[in-house]
């Protein structure tokens, strides 16, 4: 970053634990406080102890990963959903058929009840935490992204020519269709559940404000947005796909007609991953040169976390309490950074 001095103090050096896991990191996250990294080769690596245990989750490639609070859920090229506990026990959650499970989203309520939504082809299969099939949601075309709302009541699905919004508990399944021409390849819901935002093939975002039946367009990206994250209070949507962290204001009439705030730019390096902090208005961001920073939205201050010099950051996530950050890269570098630790 341009603001970094000659010898920036990277948090990784003092607060980080790192390993080279040797394959593309598809996802990273925490379950019951244990960090884990899911690799494209089908394995999950639990960041505990000196030798991080490796758990085989899929026969063939692993394509999707999510934490369900007390365990991890993964989807693979083998058409299966796997469940891996923080203790390293892997079981088959569901066998969804022939095809790739490309998307996994989860919701865990206060009592630990889990709902899993898995995108395979044109369908989203909804199962509970024990793998019992709840329903199958069919779409007019292949699923490009899946997410739950904050309360786990609704599932939003991106596909061609728009998105579909389903109620998980509805007796009869008919979605609210949100239409916009084109290929939608990712989706996010605002914390209050009122705004649906999709990433599009054409390097732009599209949004719908449900209460007003209004459209929002957010464009200007030099590449596709692969990662989107609303801040805790829903004021900002942090996005990847530009040579900075692009934050759209979802307040004061925005984002329509408002310019986004850009942070940590200036090096002509693409931002590849973003993760809003779980407690404060801060956002972690990973770049295509392996750099990771923490940006404070209010003050625009940048805390360098990991130096450049690696492959693109492909996974990034906060622990529920916001004390620890995990990230991984396309060539298997994996790190846990503990911001709560005193040293």
């Amino acid at each position: 970053m341009s603001g970094a001095t000659a010898a920036p103090g990277y948090a990784l050096e003092r607060r980080g634990t790192t390993r080279d896991l040797g394959d593309y990191v598809v996802g990273a996250g925490f379950a019951a406080g244990t960090p884990a990294f899911a690799l494209a080769d089908g394995s999950l690596h639990l960041a505990t102890g000196e030798a991080w245990p490796r758990v085989e989750a899929h026969d063939g490639g692993l394509l999707a990963f999510a934490s369900a609070g007390r365990f991890f859920v993964t989807g693979g090229e083998d058409g299966r959903l796997a469940r891996v506990t923080p203790e390293g026990e892997a079981t088959e959650l569901a066998r969804l058929g022939r095809g790739w499970v490309e998307h996994v989203a989860t919701h865990a309520d206060d009592r630990g009840r889990v709902v899993v939504a898995a995108g395979m082809g044109k369908a989203v299969h909804v199962v509970d935490g024990e793998g019992r099939a709840l329903k199958t949601l069919e779409h007019p075309s292949s699923v490009g992204g899946v997410c739950f709302d904050a309360r786990g009541k609704r599932i939003a699905v991106a596909h061609y020519n728009g998105a579909s919004l389903w109620f998980v508990a509805a007796k009869t399944d008919s979605p609210r269709r949100l239409e916009w021409k084109g290929s939608h390849i990712g989706i996010a819901l605002s914390p209050d559940g009122d705004c649906v935002v999709t990433a599009m093939q054409e390097n732009a975002l599209h949004g719908w404000r449900l209460s007003e039946d209004a459209h929002m367009r957010m464009s200007g990206y030099p590449s596709k947005t692969r990662s989107m994250s609303f801040t805790r209070n829903g004021k900002w949507l942090a996005t990847s796909g530009a040579e900075s962290v692009v934050l759209w204001p979802f307040f004061g009439g925005g984002p329509t007609g408002k310019a986004p705030t850009e942070l940590a730019g200036g090096d002509n390096v693409l931002c590849t991953q973003v993760a809003a902090h779980t407690q404060t208005d801060m956002v972690a961001a990973g770049f295509s040169d392996g750099m990771v920073v923490l940006a404070d939205i209010g003050s625009s201050r940048i805390l360098p976390v990991a130096p450049p010099g690696r492959r693109p950051v492909s996974a990034l996530a906060w622990s529920a309490d916001g004390a620890r950050l995990v990230f991984g890269t396309e060539d298997g570098f994996a790190a846990v950074v503990d911001f709560g630790r005193r040293d």
Partner: peptide, 8 residues
């Protein structure tokens, strides 16, 4: 499944 779409 061959899925063809038009670019915007």
């Amino acid at each position: 499944d061959e899925e063809v779409f038009e670019m915007n």
